[in-house]
Amino acid sequence: MVLSLAAVHRSPRGRRVFWWLMLIWPLLPLGWLVAAGFRQALGADPAQTIVTFLGLWALRFLFMTLAVTPCRRLFGWNWLQRYRRMLGLYTLFYATLHLFAFVTFILGWRADLIARELAERPYIIVGFGAWIGLVALGITSTRGWVRRLGRRWQQLHYLVYPIALLAMLHFIWLIRAGYGEVLVYGLILLALLGYRVGHRLRRARSN
């Protein structure tokens, strides 16, 4: 499988087909959500279902984006690098829908409620901060910006780590009675960030 995917990427046609696949499959969760909405299959409290669903997928795409580098180094899946920006932009896509759904279905676009949530609610502030960060990374993800920013582009995009931590905190602060699910996500993030810390330490030692 791994070998064959690498092989696929050696032919221009294979690359093109796979690029389209990688562009389209991340829309499947959204498609599922829309279909379930039309079938009225989102449960009794569809507002809550939609907001939670979109938030979880934003977090999953963020983790997939963060998994690209470890996967390349550990398994040699260098072809993944081509899709890192796409995964990152899908993170922003789902995070934006998540925020939009929250403001629409939970707050009903009421200015007084929005102002209070942003001013007083730590988990909202943290989540909103993470979203602002994602917007900054999304805007500067184009080739033009990479060129324009030069060395500083990489420094700016290290922001993805604090963004991930903020997103995780946002998730942790929503716990009510069970923390099993949050624990699983937390451990995955720990592994993704821990890998990078380990990598740095090893490199520092070998120098």
């Binding site: 009225q40 009794a44 569809p46 507002a47 939609i50 707050l107 209070r116 988990y123 929503l174």
Partner: peptide, 15 residues
């Protein structure tokens, strides 16, 4: 402490 109690979603609610 984590969310507003000023409003509620009266179920059934739809999209």
């Amino acid at each position: 402490p984590r969310w507003s109690q000023a409003t509620e979603r009266r179920l059934p609610s739809s999209l």
